[in-house]
Design a protein around this nucleic acid. Structure first.
Lengths: 349, 349
DNA sequence: AAGAAAAATGTTACCGATAACATTAAATCA
DNA sequence: TGATTTAATGTTATCGGTAACATTTTTCTT
């Protein structure tokens, strides 16, 4: 492996001081053309590029943002990571990922690493799985002493940070409204684990809208499901087998598209025809929604936009300390075939 | 924002030298218990953690690997990233991601950044989309002067590096063999763009196996498709509409599962029943394969394992310079419903 | 051409941690 | 007790840049 040329090597070789080399590298105009040329030649010859660690040490920053989330392989978080990556890139920064897995809270080890690395900011995206909010807040609060903090999740009121969230209440209302328009009355909700703040908010929005539209809010229609396909399969089976067929819901709203995928598979296995026998609405508007059979109507929470804003605000907060910022991104319903809207079909017409 | 306490602050406050503080931090046994205790208290009180930039500058390394790939939002690369992340984590390293997008080659800007950052190694995963191999090799060769290089893609013989690849030839042979067993004779291949080394290898394997089994290798069955669902839809439509129905293939092998998704959608739209009217085999064994209708038989290339080995080898290469390493990971066929194997069904029996 | 102003370049302390080497304190032995 | 090991701690150069400040060179005035 080559030893990397340093600024001293270049300075010596070009017969100038390190200050002049820095000036050439940083395009400082206060260098004579002849000098600049000479130095640049040496730089090229030695393939010199300034060391990032040295620059970071000197400047006290890292030009890096930390993104802390449960798992990147989850498509929702994957989209957040991708969006954050490009927004940071656009601003000459990089994103370093930290995965917390099931335990929602940020481990002390991660907190320390973030501080050690002098991160320019942290973006926390979470709120699936049940969460120990106490630990999480403590971690975010500690981090807040050293760098700007942003969150993409339902916030804790006690926490002062850049706070970006989905409109989770509306996220549940939109599907209910849509299904009501199509004539459905018995609508079930296969939410995430109800301990999670995220899932419970959505449950609240769901119930509110049911009542608003004067629809039955049978507790049997409100099932604590998980977040993936397997739990979707199990949850729908559990729900339906516990009900007399006459009391079955005619539509199911799921926590996310993965759960919807599982639900659809299970329903087909049970011999139902979709969307005729059961309407389904997912959430996240994942890429495969257009390719399920029937294609899946879904709510888009626009994670990309949230991540983008979060990164932008974090980078701004770097300069003017103690910026506070809050934003709620509206959800959008993307209508496809899984509720039969394309057939002009109305339940119970 | 707090100013971070430095080792000097701690030393002063504890009434010792910085050397002693370092010893306490690094758990060096050559410190008296009384001293260690005193220093540790000050460290705790000040919430001190050593600066990573300073450590990196001093040690000349970064404890970071670079992972260069086209896009993380692609599920295949997403899995590579995730696996690399955890393997690096296990070894106290982090992974920094670089996305190259369509242009396969590593841009000079990225190459410079990698060198500037004193990356402990680079892992390049690529080979979808057509590629300018010349540029790529030049970039990898330049990087090789400064750090260990590993690739997960068909290698260029001229390049000396840690070289990990899928068994792409077999990757095409497996599906053909399976379909042949099920009685299929007319098998089509919707491969990626044939300029790409990756796709062409698979095309070669496909043809070889056809000939080996004495099946027709009609060029009309070998279509240059893209890498996503839309191109799958278009490609299959193009292929079938160009053929008299009697000459239609009875099975289609696709470049990846996304293309298969598009193909399935298009075939259903054309009124075909799957798997009866057409068998399909995808590639990558993505999570949704079990949830398509019918569920999708697919080839697993085991990207996780490849990423894991690559990272492991890179970290080893850090110590003993100039390790060379090569490995070919066998592909596996995961049989589901999309070829009707579960029905005990044989074409043309 | 001398002096002032402006431009170009150089010197050096600093960022924060590490480790080789030097020094001092404590423990062991004669 | 004094000499000798051994253990504990301190001093300092170094890693590679940066920028404030100092100095030298060039250009412009009159």
């Amino acid at each position: 492996m080559n030893r990397k040329a340093t600024i001293y090597d270049i300075a010596r070789e070009a017969g100038v001081s390190t200050a002049t080399v820095t000036r050439v590298v940083r395009r400082d105009p206060r260098v004579r053309d002849a000098t600049r040329l000479k130095v640049q030649q040496v730089i090229d010859a030695y393939d010199y590029t300034p060391s990032v660690s040295a620059q970071n040490l000197e400047s006290g920053r890292s030009r890096t943002l930390a993104l802390v989330l449960p798992v990147v392989s989850n498509l929702y978080f994957n989209r957040i990571f991708d969006a954050a990556y490009w927004e940071a890139e656009k601003n000459g920064c990089s994103v370093r990922l930290f995965q917390t897995m099931e335990n929602q809270a940020i481990s002390p080890a991660i907190v320390n690493e973030l501080i050690r690395c002098r991160m320019d900011g942290v973006l926390f995206a979470g709120s699936i799985w049940s969460e120990d909010r106490g630990d999480l807040n403590a971690a975010l609060e500690r981090l807040g002493k050293y760098m700007p903090v942003a969150t993409i999740c339902p916030p804790d009121v006690s926490l002062e940070c850049i706070c970006i969230q989905s409109d989770l209440v509306n996220c549940s209302r939109l599907p209910v409204r849509h299904l009501h328009t199509l004539g459905h009355r018995r609508i079930a909700f296969l939410g995430g684990s109800m301990q999670s703040k995220d899932a419970s908010r959505r449950g609240i929005g769901f119930l509110e809208q049911l009542r608003l539209m004067d629809l039955p809010d049978d507790p049997a229609y409100h099932v604590d499901a998980g977040y993936d396909m397997e739990s979707g399969e199990r949850a729908v089976l559990r729900m339906l087998s516990g009900l007399d067929r006459s009391r079955w819901p005619t539509a199911i709203v799921t926590f996310n598209d993965l759960v919807a995928l599982g639900v659809m598979k299970q329903l087909k296995k049970m011999g139902l025809t979709l969307p005729h026998d059961m309407a389904i609405i997912g959430c996240d508007n994942q890429f495969f929604c257009a390719y399920t059979d029937p294609s899946l109507t879904s709510v888009d929470l626009h994670p990309e936009e949230m991540a983008q804003s979060a990164v932008r605000e974090l980078l701004l907060a770097r300069e003017s300390s103690s910026r506070s910022f809050a934003m709620i991104r509206e959800a959008t319903l993307v209508i496809r075939e899984s509720c039969g809207a394309h057939l002009g079909y109305r339940k119970f017409d």
